[in-house]
Write a protein that binds this DNA or RNA. Sequence first.
DNA 1: CCGAGTTTCTAGCAGTGCTAGGGATGAGAG
DNA 2: CTCTCATCCCTAGCACTGCTAGAAACTCGG
Lengths: 195, 195
Amino acid sequence: MTIQTRRERERAERERLIVTAARELAEAEGWDAVTTRRLAEEIEYSQPVLYSHFKGKGAIMAAVAVQGCADLAEEMRAARTAAGSAREALAAVGGAYTAFARRRPALYDVIFTLAVDLPFATPEAPPALQDAFGELLQAVLPIAADGEDTGLLTETYWAGLHGLVTLMRSGRLPEEAHEQRLALLIGHFVPPGTS
Amino acid sequence: MTIQTRRERERAERERLIVTAARELAEAEGWDAVTTRRLAEEIEYSQPVLYSHFKGKGAIMAAVAVQGCADLAEEMRAARTAAGSAREALAAVGGAYTAFARRRPALYDVIFTLAVDLPFATPEAPPALQDAFGELLQAVLPIAADGEDTGLLTETYWAGLHGLVTLMRSGRLPEEAHEQRLALLIGHFVPPGTS
DNA sequence: CCGAGTTTCTAGCAGTGCTAGGGATGAGAG
DNA sequence: CTCTCATCCCTAGCACTGCTAGAAACTCGG
């Protein structure tokens, strides 16, 4: 029994090693640099070992995405709970979201633009994804007007943030005016007279 | 002289053939199916011919993007000029934009998410790109509040549309509520009391 | 100490974007 | 009409990708 448990522990350890190596390599040199050969070299095993843990490169990226999404959710929660008014909370969460995207672009990409083999808008979605969405939802709830579907409003706000981030990061929007655009977006989501 | 001009004409003809073949192949089977070998086979020439016209695959995609962007701009203009009120114009342009993205996803991707070697937010940007942005700007102008930077406001509205489209198309937002989310976005950009 | 079973590696496949070099084709000179 | 030269285009190949089959090495129970 103990031998098997030790092996399972070592396997789990190595699996974590793969995921963190993939994340660090992606954050350091971008996802283009994350090849299976490079990754195998990084963990000091041969390529096929990767496939004994994950179905393929996409599954490794998905694991990194889930892990990174937990970080994002945590940062948004911290920003939200530290804010005073409802408007400040919405702005704080939006600021935390876009700051995360700019500070850790590779992580943001794998969560929100690349790996598609993750279930998203369903109950089977990983908890980390639901947590992140939940943080947005909590910030949006107080500023919803009467009769507005808060879920859809959150999705729309999220889309605004996501659009700002992706267009800016791909060079389609100039970087320097980001804060002003973010303020415009938030301003249009907060009903006038909300404190 | 005439021989040279004939050759130049044939070269230009073949170049257009390459671009349209790339566009049609991408629209039919997605950009993953657009390989240089497949493209060469489609135009009935060998691979290196592609590189005598374009610097690489990215340049071909950029050409498709510019061509597609002209289509998008035209569709947005048609929608805008057919609308009555300012609010209707904004909604019409937004609807045309998202409809284009859903109807021609490969084209949308190459314009707004993939090919990065195009100058965007500069005066050197291809006219088609500037036209498309101009259409958005024309629709946003009438609904800008006093003191708002219309350029930045347009960028923010654009980001909202882009976010809705990309999150939906990658499966991160459910498809069916798209119209409601779009209506929410537009509703939050139009000041209350604007006809 | 030896055979069974698991784990890991070597080697290779089919594909990608891209390019160097030679061979055919056609234009101009004598 | 023939020869030379330049232009164009294709064959073949490079270095790389994700992924996998089968052999080798190692571990462990008897």
